[in-house]
């Protein structure tokens, strides 16, 4: 999964639905660790502003 940085509001909703502990939020950005990501696409479905897309 990939974050569209200019669109992301850094709200962290994606973190709450990630079963793989693959997403980190800091004050300035959200980062997806694709090594841990299982491609379940929960984050993509829940993102309020569709700032996550498939791919690395």
């Amino acid at each position: 999964m990939k974050i569209i940085k200019n669109l992301c509001d850094i709200c962290g909703t994606c973190v709450a639905v990630c079963p793989a502990d693959a997403i980190i939020v800091s004050e300035f950005e959200v980062v997806i660790n694709n090594q841990k990501c299982t491609n379940c696409s929960n984050c993509l479905k829940v993102c309020p502003i569709k700032a996550i897309k498939e791919g690395e």
Binding site: C11, G12, T13, V15, A16, D21, V25
Partner: peptide, 9 residues
């Protein structure tokens, strides 16, 4: 640490 909590993990 809110909805995006990582502390628990």
């Amino acid at each position: 640490d809110g909805v995006e909590s990582r502390v628990g993990r």
